[in-house]
Computed example of a mutant assay.
Amino acid sequence: MADRAGRTLVLVVLLAGTLAVGCTDDADGATPAPGTATTAGSPSSTVPPIDLPASSVAAPPGAVTQPAQPTTGPGGSQAAHADWEESSGGEGADAWFVFEPIDPRPASAPVAIFLHGYFEFAGYDQLHELMRHTVRTGTIAIFPRWQTDVAAPCPGPVDIEPCLDSAVAGIRGALDFLRADPGRVQPELDRTSYFGFSFGGIITVNLANRYQQLDLPRPRAVFLDDPHDGAITGDDEPALDDDLGGIPADVLLECHVSADGVIAGVPGASCNSLFPQLDHIPAANKALVLTRPDDHGQPPLGAGHGVCVAGEGEADAYDWGFCWKVWDALRAAADEGVGPDHALADTPEHRSAGAWSDGTPIVPLEIARQAPITP
């Protein structure tokens, strides 16, 4: 027993030291109570569509600044719905949040499933801005809890299965909640997309790979932000399923790495480890992409672990100019059955994240069709 306790302590220390990189502290409180529903955002149930500021960090007077969010197009502020309604339920690691578009409330909507990174034990701060943008475009967002402590329910990559089980329970719980009430926005399961950050990206890949046996919605589009299992048990993302042939060949998949993120320390990890296992997906349906830091203006744009992570009010030009743009374009292309200009393809629309206030382009996205991609 003493040896087992010692091994557990060492594992917890390792997890805390490796998986916490780039994860944000929670700001939303405790695990949701079963079946609760609130309108998130402002005290009013209706929030008029407005452009977000260029950044939550003020620039000095007269400084070159980040571009503001565009009004139209993928990643733009113009949206069909003014607000979202938050509901929550489940218990422990099986808990869930679900967000429905309102003002106006549609009868039904596509579904987007979001898997957060390690160390978000409560709330949904890591992906708040991405989810809110997604919901206001007319999509239901489902956010399974899947984790309540460093090694609960799973000890990271040592045994990922309990975290997968909790993610599945959270997704099913949210879907059951919606379908039990005809007054809720009903999920269009044939239009389901998945987003995963960091360890949540590893969970996302495995869920997409096993969607049939787990009775989950078929993935139409998948966006991964610096997926990583922590490199505790190996540098090649060993928590990924050994065979990823279960991911549909017609999925649209973009995998993003940051120049100062995972591959800065473990070059063969993250998307560089995943991509060689996706040979069954046609080249036109997938892309491996890299963001780089840009300090031309104020505040500078970083390219650390979690470029797409933004708590409430913390979005910047890389969020709407890259993350939201690509996410919108992937989902629209999956619905329309045509290749997107703003995602996957090596096009100016995909590479560009906009321009600084003096007209200088932001360092463009690097796009590759095969691994490795290097900083």
Rank of each mutant, 00 (worst) to 15 (best):
L52D: 14
L127F: 15
P276W: 08
S357P: 13
A239K: 05
S193A: 13
E100M: 08
V326C: 01
Y194L: 11
C271A: 15
V47W: 10
P219G: 10
C23D: 11
P43L: 13
Q66C: 00
V363I: 14
A333E: 02
R369W: 11
P227Q: 03
Q69F: 08
T72Q: 08
S108Y: 01
A249M: 02
D28E: 15
Q212F: 14
A141H: 02
G196F: 03
G92E: 04
I102H: 00
I263G: 04
D358W: 12
G304I: 09
V262T: 03
T233I: 15
V111A: 06
A343D: 02
N285E: 09
A37W: 03
P61S: 13
Q370I: 11
N209W: 02
G41H: 08
E86T: 15
G261T: 01
S166D: 07
A239F: 02
R172G: 13
W327V: 07
C23K: 04
D103N: 14
P227M: 06
P49N: 13
L290C: 05
G246W: 05
G156Y: 09
I362H: 00
L301Q: 00
L290W: 09
P348M: 08
A315Q: 09
G62W: 04
P157N: 13
D335I: 10
D181T: 13
T46K: 03
T204E: 09
P32C: 12
D25G: 15
I202T: 14
D165K: 11
P227N: 03
A368P: 07
P282G: 12
G73V: 08
A5K: 10
I202G: 05
P348N: 07
E85V: 15
Y194G: 08
D260Q: 15
S270E: 06
F114L: 07
P104E: 07
E91S: 14
G170M: 04
A112T: 11
D103S: 13
C323G: 03
N209S: 05
W96E: 03
A93N: 01
D295C: 06
V21L: 13
I263P: 01
D341C: 08
Q213C: 04
I373T: 10
T18R: 10
E100I: 05
S45F: 15
D316G: 03
D236V: 04
T192F: 08
G138T: 10
Q78W: 12
C255I: 12
T24H: 11
P248F: 06
D358P: 12
A343P: 12
V185R: 01
W356D: 05
K286A: 11
P219R: 05
G234A: 11
P157L: 06
K325E: 00
D215N: 10
D94H: 01
S44K: 07
E366I: 15
G35T: 14
C154K: 04
G297M: 06
H256M: 01
P101D: 02
H342T: 09
